[in-house]
Design a protein around this nucleic acid. Structure first.
Length: 262
DNA sequence: TGGCGTTTTCCTGGTT
DNA sequence: CAACCAGGAAAACGCC
C-alpha cells in the first residue's frame, strides 16, 4: 500500500536506514501491520471506506480496536450503525460523541484509510517530495494518534444523534486535512498563524493536482481551485487576507481546524 | 426527474 | 512577463 516498489529513491543524507521507530509505537503498532494487514487487504480490493456496507464498517471498527488492543466493549457499536458514506461524513467531533476519547483513534484510522487510498500508489508528488525514505519513514499513524489525543482530547458526552451535517469531502475540508496531516504532505501548505487559522500555499499547483486527483479531474489547476476558494469568502468559510499571495484564513463557518475545538 | 448546493470552467481586468 | 487575485457567468456534477 505504501512503499514504492522502486528501490531507487533520493535519500537525504540526514536520514539513515538505521533509524528505528520510537518504541512508543512499535510496541503496539508497526508498519508491517499496516502494509500487509487488514487495511491493505481492503485496499487491494479497491474498496474505499465510502463504499463500505454497515457490516464492513463494523469489521473496520473491530479490526481497528484489535490493532490498538482495545476491548471492543469500550465502544458502543450501536453508535456506528452506519454505512461507509455516512461514516466518511462524520467529523472529528462526531467521532468523539460516538466513541468518547477513543473517537480520536477511530477518526485517525479512517483518515489514514482515506488518505492512503487516495495516495498509496500514486505519483502525485515529485520524487523528492514523497518517494523519499524520510517521507515514508516518518509516516507514523500512531504518533498522529498521540498528537490527536494531546491536542483534541475532549470528553464530549455522547449524543444519541450523529450529526447528519452533509460535510463530505469539500474543498475547504480537503485543505484543512492537508494542514492537519503535515506528515503526509511535505511542504504543500503551511500554517502562517495556527491560532488564527491563517495558512499559505507553498506548492499551489501540487495542491491543485492533489485536489484534481481526489475529484478524478486531471485538468485541475490552482487557477480553478482558487476560484472555488474565493467562493468561500461569501459563506465565511474563509476570510480574505489582503495583499498576501497564496494566503488564506479560515472563517467562522470553517470547523475542525483549531487545535482545541471549543 | 428536478432542484439545489458546490465546484469547474472560462473570462475580463487588475495587481504583485 | 509570469503568477496571482477578484468576481461574473454559466455549465457540470453529485445528492436527495
Amino acid at each position: 500500500m505504501v512503499l514504492q516498489a522502486s528501490g531507487v529513491m533520493s535519500i537525504p543524507a540526514t536520514v539513515s536506514v538505521d533509524n528505528q521507530p520510537p518504541a512508543s509505537w512499535t510496541t503496539h503498532y508497526n508498519c508491517a501491520d499496516v502494509t500487509s494487514g487488514y487495511m491493505s487487504r481492503l485496499w487491494s480490493q479497491d474498496l474505499h471506506p465510502q463504499t463500505w456496507t454497515k457490516y464492513q464498517v463494523w469489521e473496520w471498527l473491530q479490526q481497528t480496536l484489535d490493532m490498538h488492543q482495545i476491548d471492543a466493549t469500550s465502544i458502543p457499536f450501536q453508535n456506528f450503525d452506519l454505512d461507509g458514506r455516512q461514516l466518511c461524513n462524520m467529523s472529528f467531533q462526531d467521532f468523539t460523541r460516538a466513541a468518547g476519547s477513543l473517537g480520536s483513534i477511530l477518526f485517525q484510522s479512517l483518515t489514514d484509510l482515506k488518505w492512503n487510498g487516495q495516495y498509496g500508489h500514486t505519483d502525485m508528488f515529485t520524487p523528492v517530495d514523497i518517494k523519499t525514505e524520510s517521507f515514508w519513514f516518518h509516516f507514523n499513524p500512531y504518533s498522529i494518534n498521540s498528537t490527536y489525543r494531546n491536542l483534541w482530547h475532549v470528553d464530549v458526552p455522547f449524543q444519541s444523534h450523529i450529526s447528519t451535517d452533509p460535510r463530505g469531502t469539500h474543498l475547504w475540508e480537503f485543505i484543512r486535512d492537508i494542514l492537519l496531516n503535515p506528515e503526509r504532505n511535505p511542504g504543500l501548505i503551511k500554517w502562517e498563524d495556527r491560532s488564527e487559522g491563517v495558512f499559505r500555499f507553498l506548492k499551489s499547483e501540487a495542491v491543485a493536482q492533489l485536489w484534481g486527483k481526489k475529484k478524478n479531474n486531471s485538468s485541475m489547476t490552482y487557477e480553478k481551485l482558487s476560484r472555488a476558494m474565493r467562493y468561500y469568502y461569501k459563506r465565511e468559510i474563509l476570510e480574505r487576507v489582503d495583499g498576501r499571495r497564496l494566503v488564506y484564513k479560515f472563517g467562522r463557518n470553517a470547523r475542525g481546524w483549531r487545535e482545541s475545538e471549543k
